[in-house]
């Protein structure tokens, strides 16, 4: 077992983990943050995307011990004071989700995309989200959702 200290959604956690524990399992099983999902075993689907030190990361590609000392944001920590993040709002407004399973990963990845490129074209959104898979929406409304968020953030 290895001792780690990870700040997740602003709260510091001291944990003992097996060195092989994946970050996604640490978040889900140890911290009960089950909004981060697992959809594959080859790092294709992006259902597990979280932010580590402000960057989007597939949490199945990282060990919990590698997050020692890091600042992690999961979907549970994205809204502030009950105010949805514009990307969350966009997914709701534009029907950017159906079953909701991929959604949390999409929202985390899209929030990072908009940090780096606040005014993406539709094409840039589609390419920017290539690390995430959705089987329900056909992506049309996901693109609209992210565009909505981009416009909303620009208006602020």
């Amino acid at each position: 077992m290895t001792a780690i200290t990870v700040t997740v959604n602003g709260k510091q956690h001291h944990s003992e983990v097996e060195p092989r524990t994946l970050l996604v399992h640490y978040l889900r099983e140890h911290l009960n943050l089950t909004g981060t999902h697992i959809g594959c075993d080859t790092s294709q689907c992006g259902a597990c995307v979280v932010h580590v030190n402000g960057e989007s990361v597939k949490s199945c590609t990282m060990l919990a011990v590698q997050a020692d000392g890091a600042n992690v944001t999961t979907i549970e920590g994205l809204a502030h004071n009950g105010q949805l993040h514009p990307v969350q709002e966009g997914f709701w407004e534009k029907h950017g989700l159906q079953c909701g399973y991929c959604t949390t990963g999409f929202i985390m990845a899209a929030a990072d995309l908009l940090q780096k490129n606040p005014h993406p074209t539709d094409d840039e959104i589609r390419h920017g989200m290539e690390g995430n898979l959705c089987r329900c929406t056909g992506y049309e409304n996901i693109v609209r959702a992210i565009r909505y968020a981009s416009e909303k953030m620009a208006a602020k």
Partner: peptide
């Protein structure tokens, strides 16, 4: 949607 976009869904796993 509100529960699903905030990570408060409840799937089997």
């Amino acid at each position: 949607d509100p529960q699903l976009i905030t990570g408060r869904g409840n799937y089997v796993d």
